[in-house]
Design a binder for these strands. Structure first.
Lengths: 249, 249
DNA sequence: AATATAAGGTGTATTTCTTACACTAAGTTA
DNA sequence: TAACTTAGTGTAAGAAATACACCTTATATT
């Protein structure tokens, strides 16, 4: 029954779990890299911590997994609490279990990444207690992050860079109806390189997974572009073949 | 301080952790899919369990992570205890955290996969207490596995199938010196499809990551093939470009 | 020594994919 | 109506992928 103290670990405990992390019923946590696309840039959602350790630092949103809760569910809970959204594209990224990654004791965290559609107006919910505020940060200029969160973020970026070349995840960041130029910008910001417009369109249309709509973009000055939709049916039909999107260089 | 019982979980406890899993100091475990290549087949190492639950079933080798032990280290421990090998290619696969995946309580497991060189003679060490024996099983005819281990295995296979197309993991399964045909057989058994001999060789040699040796295969009846070595230096030079191995169909 | 056996090793033509590249068209604003 | 800004389009050259069949060579057998 010494379990608790074992879990809290030996040599390094500037805080005990009991005092600093009330309700810490488990040493599993979930951290989440939430990607969004806004103003032509790839961004992630960070919170400003309201608790020790790393009070006032920026961090990835995270939670402790409840004992009767699946890890996946915990990840969905984070998203819901912060954004009010559910039914979001989300994948497990990696599990970080360095003995000393958390200064308060042994905390193993399972990292997820998610992609959400930012329509631009949608407000972030007033954040939960452990965070003062939550903000979208462009990935090109992230602040220093708490814990090993910088490493977690880097890993998530690597992962989506690879993934975007064989799975249609770019669409998760765009509104249902989008222009080819917007889509190209998503690819460009994830891959961090410029793509050729004509080649991009040719390739993308060739996959035959988009549906061209009768509708044009609205509310832009200058010529409006045609809108497209991602066509899940067509994609599913092709899915066996596993497209190779934008294999580049 | 009810922590322990929380962790052991609510509705489902045919066994208590205390009695069935002595020394169960943590609810993290590590399970490992260990791949080897033998007799032209891809195999994995399974143990026959010597303990409840799932006594007498085949299972992936697994361990409980110690409180002061990194997850990675735990994974290496499994390998070492079973095979006496260390310094092995090993990667994290996925974390399985379904609330009910373990009948004795909440056990979150981090799965790894490893690839080892089977020279054919090397004996498995007399196994540890929780296992009666350990055996190499061809992946084409696996028995039913304990817990959710079948799902873990399937995921590992998916992962290496993808990975082999962009990273040189096939070499991890072969002896240092190998023939091109052996290499092709590794690709074929991971991808589960026949490849064209001439195209395979052309492609593989084109990458320029192999070193042709002055040596021939020995001990075979019939014509001996030239031996090759994987050249890590050459590979590192090319690494930026990230080869696309055997992208098929 | 001759023959049979089994795997080793090689090249070419076709098609498909990738890349590089620049101008006209259309809608909006002043 | 002129100026601005983005939309939208095609082709040629090079690279990579595929499909395909036979001769060579080392060993084992007679």
């Amino acid at each position: 029954m010494q379990l608790f103290f074992h879990l809290c670990g030996g040599e390094h405990k500037p805080y005990t779990l009991k005092t600093t992390l009330p309700g810490f019923e488990s040493v599993f946590s979930v951290d989440c890299v939430i990607f969004g696309f806004q103003d032509g840039e790839l961004k992630i959602l960070l919170i400003e911590r309201n608790e020790e350790p790393f009070k006032d630092w920026w961090a990835l949103p995270g939670l402790t997994v409840k004992n009767d809760e699946g890890i996946e569910c915990a990840a969905e809970r984070i998203l819901y609490e912060l954004t009010g959204l559910s039914d979001i594209y989300m994948e497990q990224l990696y599990t970080f279990g360095e003995v000393k990654r958390h200064p308060s004791g042994r905390v193993i965290t399972v990292a997820y990444y998610a992609m959400i559609r930012l329509t631009g107006h949608k407000e972030l919910k007033p954040t939960t207690s452990y965070a003062k505020k939550a903000f979208w940060h462009p990935i090109s200029e992230l602040p220093q992050l708490a814990f090993d969160h910088t490493a977690i973020f880097e890993k998530s970026l690597q992962k989506i860079r690879r993934k975007i070349s064989y799975q249609p995840i770019a669409f998760e960041l765009l509104p249902e109806k989008f222009t080819l130029t917007q889509l190209q910008h998503v690819y460009e910001s994830i891959l961090n390189k410029k793509l050729d417009k004509r080649n991009f369109r040719k390739k993308m249309l060739n996959y035959d997974i988009l549906k061209e709509l009768d509708e044009k973009q609205r509310g832009v000055s200058y010529r409006a572009a045609t809108l497209y939709k991602f066509d899940r049916r067509k994609y599913a039909r092709l899915f066996q073949k596993e497209l190779s999107f934008m294999k580049d260089e």
